[in-house]
Nucleic acid binder design. Structure first.
Lengths: 182, 182
DNA sequence: TATGTAACTCTCACTACTGAGATACTAATG
DNA sequence: CATTAGTATCTCAGTAGTGAGAGTTACATA
């Protein structure tokens, strides 16, 4: 599973031994949305994890391979930003894939600090055999919604994510940046 | 951050050094939805993590406290199901909260296997001071959408999550259950 | 009552990841 | 050039969390 998710429900007022919680309506709406979003996300992750597990890959490993498969060789840093792991994690992931012969590092001539990661033939073959299946699993996991609904959902989430992303980018970096400036 | 997330985009056909990928339209729609869902989820998690961090709590710890705060004392197993951690993780989390004096264990008279977890006074006070702020952060993270849109989104996600949850419950448990039956 | 099965928590070895630095290089500026 | 800042990866110690299994206790049924 993924990150532990909140347990909040609309039960307000004193519960046996619990606390009274009062929130205004917009906040309550947002909280509810978050609970539902987190839960559906986790449910899907679980389905995907079960699928990926069958090929002895972690979700992170699969994410790296997927990035390489779809976008071709990339700098480690690029992949890192895409799949959201730490720098240490990125190195570790490529190491592991390399050890299994699924990916390899390539030096960058124009910048000798940088290294590309790329799929090996074996890795590419694996993805070719795995990915369509994986896509089918996602398709199946989404089949609770009609296509039109899926598109609507996508649009809403995109808007939501854009704002949240802006907020996220602001918060921790700002903290560091502000501290630097002293 | 949470679980590493996919990098798929709609770029199909051969990319520099990459592979050709062809998916039928419904699958492409589902894939896209998943990418967007995962990204917005992660963005929000990042925002929340930054908030929770300020109180020296992990997301998992906060989730436990939140469950106790809103629903009162509960069996460890109940919390576990709610916040989706392993049994070992559950024990560990309560240990840690107990060590900090924020939560405590209580024996259950009717079932001596079971133990309740409950917030201490200190833990309850902490939640009282933290939670409204936390709710405000969520509210802020969601402010890219109007309330009506948020409700719409909630409804769609609920449908999606229900189906995905059914699928998730089926997959890994079934595997184990089937194996048992031999 | 005996007995098998299920339900709870806890233990422990293990793993995937993080985050702070180290190292190596590039680039901009005086 | 020399210096300083910035960027890219890698190292490594530390940590949160997993999952299989042990130890208890409850419960249903013969």
């Amino acid at each position: 599973m993924n990150s532990p998710k909140r347990a909040t429900s609309k039960e307000h007022g004193p519960v046996k031994g619990g606390a009274a919680v009062t929130a205004d309506l917009p906040t309550a709406t947002a909280l509810k949305l978050w609970v539902v979003l987190a839960r559906s996300h986790d449910a899907i992750v679980e389905v995907l994890k079960a699928d990926i597990d069958r090929h002895d890959l972690t979700i992170a490993e699969f994410a790296v391979m997927e990035a390489l498969y779809h976008k071709g060789p990339q700098l480690l840093g690029e992949i890192q930003k895409r799949i959201l792991v730490s720098s240490g994690g990125m190195t570790f992931l490529v190491d592991r894939l390399a050890k299994r012969g699924l990916a390899e590092r390539q030096n960058c001539q124009s910048d000798r600090r940088a290294r590309y990661a790329a799929l090996t033939k074996k890795g590419d073959k694996l993805m070719q055999s795995i990915f369509p299946e994986h896509a089918a699993v996602i398709h199946k996991a989404m089949k609770g919604l009609k296509q039109s609904e899926q598109r609507e959902l996508t649009a809403l989430l995109k808007t939501l994510g854009k704002e949240a992303g802006r907020l996220a980018a602001e918060t921790p970096a700002c903290k560091a940046a502000m501290a630097e400036q002293e």
